[in-house]
Design a protein around this nucleic acid. Sequence first.
DNA 1: TAGTAATACATCGGCACCGATGTATGCTCT
DNA 2: AGAGCATACATCGGTGCCGATGTATTACTA
Lengths: 181, 181
Amino acid sequence: MLELAILGFLYDAPLHGYELRKRITALTGHVRPVAESTLYPAIKRLEKAGLLTRETQPGSVAAQRHVLNLTAAGREELRGRLAEPGRVDITDENRWFTVLAFLRHLDDPAAQATVLARRLAFLEEPASFFYEGERPLHAEELDDPFRRGILTIARATSRAELAWLRSTLTDLRGRAETKPF
Amino acid sequence: MLELAILGFLYDAPLHGYELRKRITALTGHVRPVAESTLYPAIKRLEKAGLLTRETQPGSVAAQRHVLNLTAAGREELRGRLAEPGRVDITDENRWFTVLAFLRHLDDPAAQATVLARRLAFLEEPASFFYEGERPLHAEELDDPFRRGILTIARATSRAELAWLRSTLTDLRGRAETKPF
DNA sequence: TAGTAATACATCGGCACCGATGTATGCTCT
DNA sequence: AGAGCATACATCGGTGCCGATGTATTACTA
């Protein structure tokens, strides 16, 4: 999740840790803040795995900074993670949004469509948060106003996303036909 | 998160671990599956903290089962966690939904309203996933179709939830007036 | 009668993440 | 001249969670 965001931001341009942190905070921080003590170890992990390099620069503004650069392997890794996200990356909204935020880096429309199609398939499964036996319940069947709220909100999200997915998929497939390779 | 769900389900009735797992899977499993190796240690933690007791029963259906029972401290703990959720429980949709799923156990309408009001305040903050300097961008200003999708979906969710929150809040406040204590 | 599935619980190693805390530098305001 | 703040990186202990694996029992089914 965090690693995906790091790779995604560095794919565009080399950044130092602090700037990276600000961008990640802007992207997902209002929902789940990123602790510094999570970011720096994550950077080190990626460096150790050969996905990025760190270049020490004398502190132009403040203390010395390490400019982070994706390696070829790092770029490959990002494309791989975007093209074949794990199951939870598709189902968990937080993770899914992070995938979406960087999906443009996967510049093949067909590959992008494949990823969107997986999300579409997931949303089309009949699922709820509450069941009677096997049967998913819908909002009107619940007495509890708070649980009814969950279903009301989830349904609104689902509808909006399904509409967006379908229209974006036809767009992408149109583009894939025009420019097949 | 998981602990809240455990406390929440046991608040209604004593259950054994396996049944608990099925209920948690029904509630949040389609988004984030719960591993068994996460559930059982969590139960142990809560037992160690004196929030629940385990009673071994001979296996009526299969292997022996431990029936889990909330203690008075456990009930108190749940009410506390519901009445004063952490910041992330309010902002992260996954956690927030779990709070909502059990908020009825907090049977004072005024206390319930306080929690909903916190979520309302969070959603009313002007926030986005993408910024130009300080200014939050909205969907129409983005070229990237995927990022535009994020904002489109988030806006639909936000609208539905704001409407639900406002109407539920007036309901709750009406009930709080009628029955002040 | 053997195989498989469902029920039911447990442990182990590993890792991501967090809060607290520490160390510097350089800029701005008073 | 000194305080305070933003910049910038780092370590440490703790914990929640996961995947893999193991152990039993009961029920079904081929």
